[in-house]
Design a protein around this nucleic acid. Structure first.
Lengths: 118, 118
DNA sequence: CGTATCCATTGACGATCATCAGTTCAATTG
DNA sequence: CAATTGAACTGATGATCGTCAATGGATACG
């Protein structure tokens, strides 16, 4: 992170013209950026992040009825957050009779995680 | 990720009582969750994610005038995204005369990155 | 059957977001 | 000084978000 640089415009600026041409470009293409941003968006709420945390620590499947009382939120709100996570592809669920069990999908966080720690 | 489990209510359910007591708890405390969620929120936009990507790849500092033409967005909009990233503590900027140079703050993404790859 | 239970969905609310056109501010140049 | 330039700020608009009360649907139990 401590690379020095020239804090000079990348190009001499003739008056009446733009200051410089871009010499930097994203390594991450638009599509990757959109995929990772959508994962980040799903994690961009403390409740959802904690939900994912619980589900990850319990590699198995966790009943919704165990998740709801962890938060000071109504059951529909927790259900909504789980839906957001499901639609982002981060978790999935399975019904077993009256209960619904949620679990983290393997590799769902891999791309974002890899980019962040690169 | 492939641990098996008992898909049974954690407790026999006497009619007229809640289905089960929670046996799972978040490892991540509320405050950590809020910090990481706020970082994720700042990254929850493809433009901002690409901005961070560019700034990270160029460990030095990049002029705003180089960033604006990378996107099909107005200059005030790019400036707004940079402000969001700055307020999240992910980037910082330095003025050099007429130009503003942005750079990624070291370790800003560390906590989220660590949690994601844990 | 009827009733209780768990979970999802709906509709509504205020709050926040992404974007732009227009403007302001600071610094450089002539 | 006046004109120009790079970047941030302002205000506005339409979209999305987080939350809840109320409801609906499915399953289990007596």
């Amino acid at each position: 992170m401590a690379v020095d640089l020239e804090l000079a415009p990348k190009q001499k600026r003739p008056v009446g013209q733009p200051c410089c041409e871009p010499v930097v470009y994203p390594d991450v293409e638009r599509h990757e950026a959109e995929r990772m941003a959508s994962i980040a968006k799903a994690l961009a709420d403390p409740v959802r992040l904690q939900l994912v945390d619980v589900l990850r620590k319990h590699a198995g499947k966790v009943c919704v009825c165990e998740l709801v009382p962890l938060f000071d939120l109504s059951q529909p709100t927790v259900s909504h957050h789980l839906k957001v996570l499901r639609q982002a592809g981060i978790v999935d669920s399975e019904r077993q009779g009256l209960w619904a069990y949620y679990f983290v999908k393997p590799d769902a966080l891999e791309e974002l995680s890899g980019w962040l720690s690169s």
